[in-house]
Design a protein around this nucleic acid. Structure first.
Length: 253
DNA sequence: GCTCCATAAGTGCAGTCTAA
DNA sequence: TTAGACTGCACTTATGGAGC
């Protein structure tokens, strides 16, 4: 999908991009190989070629951050298929909703390993940096509004400057409404019985149960809930991406 | 080459919605 | 309940084509 993206060119939005696709130019290679493109002025093509060559170089060198700088933020989801093997799926629990809330549990799910880090045990800047090390894309649900700003506030030394695929907004583009839990239900995702009714507010309650009464069961449920939230993001990201490609991109390959 | 008009992208603002 | 990213709308700006 990323090599089909022309919205990195000046004055090219969704409509112009579709016109370019429909002229038979479907990839960056097509664009560079063409001597002329019917819907594009020669001067514009001359100006655009170096930008596309730069994007190809960045893609070849797997520089997701620099590539994301060229692409409008709402279109960063297009990078997912290319960088999915190096994606980090992220979800956090806190003791409230404020920006300076205490982060209680963080799960980072990677291709080969899932890290669940807990306040008072193993949650610190170093372990969080280790969990995110080498990740090219961050996949979250509402993470751009909540998880990442909260983590940046609590762990300012951790680098969160990673292109983000936020499933809250991506799922809206393809017609889904509501939060993560209704989305899971709609996609047929089932949770274990002991966490099926848990939500964010209950997660706060479980944390206080643990802190005030030393209730280990409450802590275990909280960790399991956070882990399930995060691991499920991988499946959801794939489904939403496929729908975006066929529905939102406005062109069937 | 200039002007006018149509089209598309960019910008700014208010409203929406989600997280725990 | 709070914060902020995104969306949608209205308005502005830029670009390209047509006509003179």
């Amino acid at each position: 999908m990323i090599e089909h993206t022309f919205q990195l060119l000046p004055s090219v939005g969704a409509k112009k991009e579709k016109v370019i696709w429909e002229s038979g130019v479907r990839t960056w290679d097509d664009f560079l190989a063409a001597d002329s493109i019917e819907c594009v002025k020669p001067a514009f093509k001359e100006k655009s070629d170096p930008i596309i060559m730069q994007a190809e170089e960045l893609l070849k060198s797997e520089d997701a951050g620099a590539l994301a700088d060229l692409i409008p933020k709402p279109e960063h989801w297009r990078m997912y298929r290319h960088f999915m093997d190096d994606a980090a799926y992220l979800d956090i629990e806190t003791d409230g909703l404020s920006r300076d809330a205490l982060v209680t549990v963080v799960t980072v799910h990677r291709k080969n390993k899932t890290y669940t880090l807990t306040e008072g045990f193993d949650l610190d800047s170093e372990s969080l940096s280790d969990a995110l090390k080498g990740s090219k894309m961050l996949v979250t649900f509402n993470g751009s509004c909540f998880d990442v700003p909260v983590l940046k506030n609590s762990f300012p030394e951790v680098d969160f400057d990673i292109p983000q695929y936020d499933l809250r907004f991506a799922s809206r583009k393809v017609g889904y409404r509501g939060g993560l839990k209704p989305l899971e239900v709609e996609l047929g995702i089932h949770r274990d019985e002991d966490i099926v009714d848990v939500d964010g507010a209950m997660a706060v309650h479980f944390w206080h149960q643990w802190k005030r009464h030393g209730d280990e069961d409450a802590l275990n449920i909280l960790q399991e809930y956070n882990r399930a939230d995060t691991v499920n993001l991988e499946y959801i990201a794939g489904v939403i991406f496929d729908k975006l490609v066929t529905d939102h991109a406005g062109y069937r390959w």
